[in-house]
Design a binder for these strands. Structure first.
Lengths: 366, 366
DNA sequence: GTCGTTGCTGGTAGCGCTGTCAACGATCCT
DNA sequence: AGGATCGTTGACAGCGCTACCAGCAACGAC
């Protein structure tokens, strides 16, 4: 009871209050809701805090207030370029806000995701960002029972838990195939790696487009559960050529694979796009400077992360978006690898909310 | 005072203790040091906790124990492949441990790093991982005053704050140039982007090697503060060719730039390696499957992250490594792009602790 | 002049857990 | 047998902050 000022050299709120000549609770309010103080006390507390170099104890705050200022982020991979762009957007959006990010890696396992979710929710996060729409039943139940805002990112689908931001991988794949059709290609192969739910939906889009044109054959599809890589692109393409030497185009489920195909074609002296056209997915930076330049489906990954984080913060602060489901769309960027005219960077088909407009959830494909 | 059992439906340690028929403090000990309990009580508490689905309140624990189980990680970039590999190693090492990771992005700014450090240290982290050895004086002082283990990663140098794990970028660059000399190259250009301290040291290594051979010329060096990209590799290479058309090799400060150079050469129909040899840095996955395959300096990024995290946890638990500075070394992976013999993947020079052995800090270059 | 009403401030009482120390029986040694 | 030691357990008192509610002055409406 008799303790006073710094007991172990560290500055507590009580010290700040004492220096400012106010009660601790008034000093506390200064940090949470400065407007509630009179201007005189506000400046007194502020200068006292600065003078002492006060930094609040987050653990004490969390314990007393029964909530944390932590945002949980669950992503499947730290390595994949796609997620690093999303993450960058998320971190950028939180810059300067009072929230901090707790990142965890599910390694593409929904069981791992469930385990992490349980851990996160026990600490009462201020909000949660989760990847995709394929949670376990248990995870889904926990998410719905959670009393914090939640954003699902990377794709859109029916029945959002709360908010959702992404685009239709299915439609994007269909647009890529439509582009190849428009260029006169018919025997179009598909190569995919990892085959997580989003890659699977790209495959579904490919299959549906091919079936509609009555061109689908199972042997045009080569996939593997192995994580993606450039080298793997070459391997899968070799496999595809072995099964069906007569293909005239390849749709790659991501750009790493597409680059691998490019190199494999070079190795085999296959002319691109004359003999085989290539279309990738994600439009990573290198696609535009490859030789030949590579067509890809551009996705707005950075914006996705940034917008998700922004929406989440707004929702935490009580300002829920009028439209909780946001389709960020995609755009087929036509380049030399699929253009008979050898032109560069002509935007072709696009879909969803490509102009970053808020749009209603398009009727899902399932 | 009169409260009892779940006040708001949530399970506290007190509930677990009550169900197990022990005092709260005994239940608390079960989670921190199970060996201190008799086997009978241990199993009783364990089953009670499982039955109730107890999850400890981390904020309360942190407040009461005056320490957190959070490891702070400060890295300059989330986008750069190099750091995502390191991060993956760090996250893998923490998997299953009781620590959690708090990641922050300094954006290559040592002032930002200082700000973040202040924030982190105020929360009494269990340990800290920081990138590089170029902190501000203020940051350095804070790190030295911190009462938690600290690992500096990515490079090694004199005067570690505490522990250190990395390799000599200077020596690695010298080895790359030595390799090019051995292949008969003399007019060797350097291209570099971002020019963070580690890239700068690679440049220093290049300069010293060239000067020793009396081959250095300022116009062979093209650098920019712009962040790296494949496209930028082509641009810088174009610039270099403009200044000195007679170059016979390029040492690229990273692999993205090298890939850009490869494409630019293809565009200009410059034969690799006959007309110009290319050497990259980091040995990213795609280097081995490019056409031609690209020589690079392999660095052990994943191991670096994993080992750093492991060392840190050990140190937190009181088992300090006998050798606090660990040189993970590098290896020049010779491939077609710099080999007159057109062979693939012949390891050439290597340096530092390339065999993952603990080695003493080699005498620094500065 | 009285009665709200508003704006600001402070006191009290914990949030859920753990550090410290004391107490206890059991075990060991001389 | 007596004392010392060890292993195990529990009581107490906070950790630093905030939720809640009460108090008080200033003000306006009637």
């Amino acid at each position: 009871m008799g303790r006073k000022r710094t007991k172990s050299g560290k500055i507590r709120l009580a010290e700040v209050a004492e220096l400012a000549g106010v009660s601790p609770i008034t000093a506390s309010r200064f940090f949470r809701n400065p407007e509630a103080l009179s201007v005189a006390k506000r400046t007194r507390v502020e200068s006292a805090a600065n003078e002492l170099g006060y930094v609040p104890n987050l653990a004490a705050r969390a314990l007393a207030s029964q909530r944390t200022e932590v945002i949980g982020v669950l992503i499947p991979s730290l390595t994949n370029n796609v997620f690093s762009d999303v993450l960058r957007g998320i971190y950028d959006a939180y810059e300067g806000s009072r929230y901090s990010i707790q990142l965890s890696n599910t390694r593409y396992s929904i069981l791992q995701e469930e385990r992490l979710l349980r851990l996160f929710l026990a600490q009462k996060p201020a909000g949660l960002i989760v990847t995709g729409i394929d949670q376990t039943t248990e995870s889904r139940a926990m998410l719905e029972a959670a009393d914090c805002p939640i954003v699902q990112i990377m794709e859109i689908g029916p029945n959002p838990v709360d908010m959702m931001i992404g685009f239709s991988h299915y439609d994007a794949a269909r647009a890529a195939i439509a582009h190849l059709f428009a260029q006169g290609h018919r025997k179009i192969g598909f190569i995919g790696a990892r085959m997580d739910p989003r890659v699977q939906r790209r495959l579904d889009g490919y299959v549906s487009a091919m079936k509609e044109a009555d061109l689908f054959e199972q042997r045009l599809v080569v996939t593997t559960a192995t994580p993606t890589s450039v080298t793997l692109g070459g391997t899968l393409f070799t496999d595809l050529l072995g099964r069906e030497p007569g293909i005239d185009a390849v749709f790659c489920a991501n750009d790493d694979l597409a680059l691998g195909v490019l190199f494999e074609c070079r190795r085999r002296e296959i002319a691109i796009p004359e003999q085989i056209a290539i279309v990738g997915f994600n439009d990573l930076e290198f696609m535009a400077s490859a030789v030949p330049t590579l067509t890809s489906v551009r996705t707005n990954r950075y914006e996705m992360g940034k917008t998700a984080a922004t929406m989440l913060i707004e929702a935490i602060d009580g300002r829920r978006p009028e439209q909780p489901v946001l389709d960020l769309g995609f755009k087929v960027i036509e380049r030399q690898s699929s253009s008979s005219r050898h032109q560069d960077s002509r935007p072709a088909a696009s879909g969803g909310g490509a102009q970053n407009k808020m749009v209603a959830l398009p009727s899902g494909h399932d």
